[in-house]
C-alpha cells in the first residue's frame, strides 16, 4: 500500500469497516510513514470538527412569518382540496408522458437513461408496456399501474437530475 492508496481508504479505516487484509497493509504502512500518520490525525480531527457544525437557527420573525404563510395556505388548500388533487393528477400524467416521450425519442439524459432501462428490465409491467409501444406513440392514457410505477421512478431519480437532456 502506498500513501495515495492509504488516503483513499481513510474513511473505511476510521469507520471500522475496513477488510482485514487491507487493515494489515494499512497498519504496516502507517507504522513507518510520518506524513501518513499526520494525515490520518488531521483527517480524523477534520471529521470531528465537521460533525460539530450546527445548522443555522431560524430567526424568530422569520418563523412567525413562515407560520402565518403556511397556515393560511393550509386553509386555502382545505377549501379547494379537490381542485388541488385534480391538478396533481394532471401534473403526474404530464410528467410521465414527458418521460415516455423522451424515452421513445432517445432524449433521456445519460444518467436517467441508465436508471430507466434498469427499471424497465426489472419491472415486468413497465417492461411489457414499453416493448408494446416500441418506438411508436404511447397510448393515452397510459395504464394506471404503469403510470404509478413511472411516477414513483421519477420520485427516486437523483436530485438535481432532469430526466430529458437538452
Amino acid at each position: 500500500m502506498n500513501c495515495k492508496e492509504l488516503v483513499y481508504l481513510l474513511e473505511d479505516y476510521l469507520e471500522g469497516t475496513m477488510e482485514e487484509h487491507l487493515m494489515r497493509d494499512f497498519s504496516a504502512h502507517i507504522e513507518k510513514c510520518e506524513p501518513c500518520k499526520n494525515f490520518l490525525k488531521t483527517y480524523d480531527t477534520t471529521r470531528i470538527l465537521c460533525r460539530k457544525m450546527k445548522p443555522e437557527e431560524i430567526p424568530a420573525e422569520v418563523r412567525t412569518r413562515l407560520k402565518e404563510f403556511v397556515m393560511e395556505k393550509g386553509r386555502e388548500y382545505r377549501k379547494d382540496i379537490e381542485k388541488y388533487r385534480e391538478r396533481a393528477v394532471c401534473e403526474r400524467r404530464e410528467q410521465v408522458a414527458a418521460l415516455i416521450g423522451a424515452y421513445v425519442s432517445h432524449r433521456l439524459s445519460p444518467n436517467t437513461s441508465a436508471l430507466f432501462e434498469a427499471h424497465r428490465d426489472r419491472c415486468p409491467k413497465c417492461g411489457a408496456f414499453l416493448r408494446s409501444i416500441n418506438g411508436g406513440e404511447a397510448p393515452s392514457p397510459v395504464p394506471l399501474e404503469v403510470e404509478e410505477h413511472l411516477a414513483e421512478f421519477l420520485e427516486t431519480l437523483p436530485l438535481g437530475e432532469s430526466p430529458a437532456s437538452g
Partner: peptide, 8 residues
C-alpha cells in the same frame, strides 16, 4: 504514490 509535500 507518496505524499508530494510535507504533511504537518
Amino acid at each position: 504514490g507518496m505524499h508530494a509535500s510535507p504533511i504537518d
